[in-house]
């Protein structure tokens, strides 16, 4: 491992520990762990003249456990499986409506705003996890890496404002909050929902999966409309 990679990992970990502590102490939604840490790391990389390509090996090492961690979402889901049956209808209808709404509103605004077609097609799948989004963008002439960037931007925004927005519009039911966070801002929303509570987190994980599958199914229709 190169010294640069080692330093990058140490810096990312340090930023995480620091901002997590701040978040846990003050609990303010603007003390967003991902946003603040990523901003600090970007500033550090720019200041040291390090490109994202040079940071990539560190990213690979640090995200190695993301796959197994995501698989672990089955654990809270299993613990709260009684909610699945009780909320089955609500889960399917609300996530389907949310996924369709996210795709169409993003695509329409991008199109009416005069963005190039390939950018529009890259923003349509922004509400799903990266592998889904890349596949959808590729199928419909979007730009896969740009699609991935929109996914990250959406997840980051959702984790920044999602919880406080839901509170403001009077959504207090923990299942509803979890489903909303997972549908709109996929894994990052799920991570945020987990910080709020396990019920929210397990429902967000479920919504993320469902939204991913439904978005892939809806994509051809969205492309036709846009």
């Amino acid at each position: 491992m190169s010294p640069l990679t080692l330093a990058a990992i140490a810096a990312t970990l340090a930023a995480y520990v620091l901002f997590r502590r701040l978040y846990l102490r003050y609990g303010h939604p603007l003390l967003n762990i991902v946003v603040l840490s990523a901003a600090a790391i970007i500033a550090l990389l720019l200041a040291c003249g390090v490109s994202y390509q040079e940071y990539a090996p560190a990213r690979e090492i640090m995200t190695f456990l993301l796959g197994p961690a995501t698989v672990g979402l089955a654990v809270p889901l299993y613990r709260h499986r009684h909610l699945l049956r009780r909320y089955a209808v609500a889960i399917v209808t609300s996530v389907a409506a949310g996924a369709a709404c996210a795709m169409l509103s993003a695509g329409l605004i991008a199109r009416l705003g005069g963005l190039p077609r390939e950018v529009v097609m890259s923003i349509v799948p922004k509400g799903v996890s990266i592998p889904f989004a890349i596949e959808i963008a590729r199928l419909y002439d979007g730009i896969p890496p740009l699609a991935a960037a929109f996914v990250v931007a959406t997840g980051t925004l959702g984790s920044l404002i999602g919880a406080s927005f839901l509170t403001r519009v009077g959504i207090t039911n923990p299942v509803a909050r979890g489903l909303a966070l997972g549908t709109v801002s996929h894994a990052q929303g799920t991570a945020t929902a987990l910080l709020e509570g396990e019920r929210q987190g397990s429902m967000a994980g479920l919504a993320m999966i469902l939204a991913g599958v439904l978005t892939a199914l809806f994509a051809p229709f969205a492309v036709m409309i846009l």
């Binding site: 991902v34 946003v35 990523a38 940071y55 990213r59 995200t63 961690a69 990266i130 991935a148 990250v152």
Partner: peptide
């Protein structure tokens, strides 16, 4: 895990 990914922005 989303910190290094968000740095990609």
């Amino acid at each position: 895990f989303f910190i290094p990914i968000a740095v990609g922005l």
